[in-house]
Computed example of a mutant assay.
Amino acid sequence: MTDSRELDLPAGYVELLEDLKATVKAARTTALRTINTQLIELYWTIGQGVRLQQEQQGWGSGVIKKLSEDLRREFPEMKGLSPRNIQYMTTFAGAWQGGPIAQQAVAQLPWGHVTVLLDKVDTQEKRNSYAAAAVQYGWSRNVLLNMIMNRTLERTGAAPSNFAQQLVAQDTELAQQIAKDPYNFEFLGLSGEVAERELELALTSRITETLRELGPGFAFVGRQVHFDVDGDDYYVDMLFFHMDQNRFNCTKGLRRLGEHFALAA
């Protein structure tokens, strides 16, 4: 096959190619951002419905657990429907009450960012400010957490005021996290495996080389190993057992296992 680089390209070809590449990337970012916003809207709607029932009917944790079980039975590919996550949704709906959620900065953030804001920020005004800054500056979740813990906006007074008009830039860490967010994959019924399928297949098809790279003493246990921790679902991409250390070790997956890479046996 003739390499297009060997051809005499007509005038304007390179410029058009670069424009089209930028257009494709922008369209992909827009599509991913739309999916993410739809998921955040869904979570807010679920939380709002539960919150109203809690106020009107006195729903407790037992009802939320039953609701979680019924929803997960209907949508088994959605791991974000655990009792704990539904409680987060309820807190989320109670925190963001002003206007349509899709028009607020928080709707452009991955769900992991939202839970950080709920856990680590004590007033709604500050939550809005940090959400707006995360969108404007493309902060990853770890950067957002560091900014909150350092009280950056409180010290600098640099909270953006135009967050409703901000869009997530396609070349930021935030955009990359939206593209890889397991909640978005599960929302689409893809179960979070699609993005890492090639990596996992490559690793499992060459398990001997993988173990050799990890070092001596490792034994392969399995892939996409399921853990249930207090009703929450966790999946490990690849789980190993180190015989000398007498402990399990894992690769961190699209579907999180907290921030831990090693589990005591």
Rank of each mutant, 00 (worst) to 15 (best):
A169Q: 09
Q103A: 07
L39G: 03
G215S: 07
A264F: 00
Q97G: 14
L174D: 01
T90Y: 00
E209K: 08
E198V: 11
Q108C: 02
Y137M: 08
T208Q: 13
S205E: 15
H226K: 11
R73Q: 13
L109W: 01
G98A: 04
E18F: 09
T91I: 09
K65D: 15
L239R: 06
K79S: 12
T37V: 14
G80D: 00
A131D: 05
S129E: 12
I46F: 08
A158K: 12
A169P: 08
Y130H: 01
Q54R: 15
E259T: 09
Q53D: 13
E6D: 14
T34S: 13
G94H: 07
Q87I: 13
Q48H: 08
F163V: 12
Q87R: 08
L211F: 01
G62K: 13
E196P: 06
E198Y: 02
T29W: 02
L67A: 09
G231H: 09
M78I: 11
K126P: 00
G99M: 09
T152R: 12
I148G: 06
G98T: 09
V50Y: 01
T210C: 07
E15S: 14
Q87A: 15
K180N: 04
L254G: 09
F220H: 06
L263N: 04
G157Y: 02
S191Y: 03
L239E: 08
P110V: 02
R155N: 07
T152Q: 12
G12V: 07
P216K: 06
A164S: 12
V229T: 12
S61K: 14
A133I: 02
P83G: 10
E193S: 11
A133P: 01
E196R: 09
Q224K: 11
R247V: 01
M243W: 04
R255K: 11
I86F: 03
L167E: 13
A11N: 12
A132F: 02
S161R: 08
R73F: 07
L7N: 06
L20T: 07
P110C: 04
H260K: 15
R247P: 04
K25W: 02
T204K: 08
D237F: 01
G258R: 00
E18H: 14
F227W: 10
L118N: 04
L174A: 04
H260N: 15
V24C: 05
G192A: 06
T210N: 04
V106T: 10
D244W: 01
L263T: 08
L201V: 14
Y235H: 12
A107R: 01
M1A: 10
E41K: 10
S68G: 14
W44Q: 11
Q136F: 01
E77M: 06
T23N: 08
Q48V: 01
L167F: 00
G222W: 00
E154C: 14
H242M: 04
T156M: 07
R151T: 10
G94Y: 05
V225P: 05
Q177R: 09
R84M: 07
N162V: 14
G258W: 00
D3R: 00
